[in-house]
């Protein structure tokens, strides 16, 4: 299983990747991208099973990125990790996201959400 973490904050990418390992997903291949544009370049060349995406990013927002991913069928599972909170869940799902993990998150919230998504 290959997971791509997309966030314009290097620190947040590090924390998400650390949380993935702590939540028991450390055996998967985890990669990172610092922008929507960089993520699309990676996804058009390499198949990922899951994309975890920030919402609020410069140049290309998370919503715009998810829309392209769904249109071009670049990844089967996409979700948000964002400080926007669950109030944007409807907007996220309409764009094609399967889930939204609000910040601040815990290891448990990652484990619970991703176990459900990855077995579906």
């Amino acid at each position: 299983m290959k997971i791509l973490v997309v966030d314009d904050s290097k620190v947040m990418r590090m924390i998400i990747m650390r949380t993935l390992r702590q939540a028991g997903f450390g055996a998967h291949a985890i990669s990172e991208a610092g922008s929507g544009t960089e993520a699309l370049a990676v996804l058009r060349n390499e198949r990922f099973d899951l994309v975890l995406c920030d919402w609020n990013m410069p140049e290309m927002t998370g919503l715009e990125l998810v829309a392209v991913i769904r249109t071009e069928r670049l990844a089967p599972r996409v979700g948000f990790v964002t400080s926007e909170g669950t109030s944007r869940l409807r907007e996220a799902t309409e764009a094609g996201a399967l889930f939204l993990i609000p910040k601040p998150f815990t290891v448990e919230s990652f484990e619970q959400t991703l176990r459900t998504v990855l077995v579906a």
Binding site: S9, T86, S87, P102
Partner: peptide, 14 residues
Amino acid sequence: IGEIANVIGGNVKG
């Protein structure tokens, strides 16, 4: 510290 403001601000916005 930008992420900290982002998370607190996001929760206020929420």
